[in-house]
Amino acid sequence: MDILITGLLLGGTYALIAMGLNLQYGMARIMNLANGEMLVAGGFAAFWLYNAGQVSPLLTVFLVAPLAFALNWLIYRVMLLPLVRRAKSRGQLEVDSILATFGLSFVAVGLMLMAFGGDYFSYSYLARPVSFLGDTYALNRMVAFLAAVVICGALYLWLERSRAGMSIRAIAVAPESARLVGIDVPRLAAIAFALGGAVTAAGGALISSFLTLDASTGVVFTLKALIIVIMGGVGDVRGTIVAALLLGVMETFVAALIDPGLTLAAAYLLFILILLFRPQGLFGQRTT
């Protein structure tokens, strides 16, 4: 029981990160393999602010999110839009954006190594036990989970209800028709990409309150976020959340019952099963 809840708590934060990637891949159509580095950068900011001025990671979110938004917007306009424009086919854009974002990812790791060194970073924020349904859990995990729920919920409402949100969903489904009804596709794709980066960085700030990060862990989170997005269905918000919770629970089970060194292997096994049996995602319609 406590494994289940710990898993769900972890899954909630995963949902936030995967949601960021889903905005970038599902809506802006860029597979951003530097996503994990944005998360680590968010985590570093939280670490640094907490150590320098005891700033709560919850407050850091409000600082990190707009910064990450601006940075990702710039990355999209300066680096990725030219690739979108020169691509003759979807396949070519895919290859180009994979290579370019890999490049970005390594550059980001290199810069963070230069600035912070290769050490592990962790700090002790709200590291108190609390009891819930008869078991005890770390308070920081609960708080991070609640914050993730609030952010995910706000994002979901924004996508469902607001005009900009609906336009972004429109470009995800049918970019050509979206252009015809007067939606400025490059502008909205940039916003979706930037928003995705902001959400991921916020997730990083939250996750740093209970996980240890170092400059080169980003790729692990990228991999997990990708697995969640594909499992949940590209562009599917509800699917992403369910898949994230599933992954969180499964990892926690494997870590508790078999070996903590196998968490990524477990996630990967789940990924293989999805690819073999439901490549369109858990809730996706099978199309040809």
């Binding site: 290579l99 370019a100 990812s105 390594f106 550059v107 980001a108 810069l111």
Partner: peptide
């Protein structure tokens, strides 16, 4: 310590300058 950075720059050079 800069080999990671080199790797990243090499990727970017390939995509933007030497496709």
């Amino acid at each position: 310590n800069q080999t990671t950075l080199l790797l990243g720059v090499a990727f970017l050079v390939i995509v933007y300058l030497l496709p």
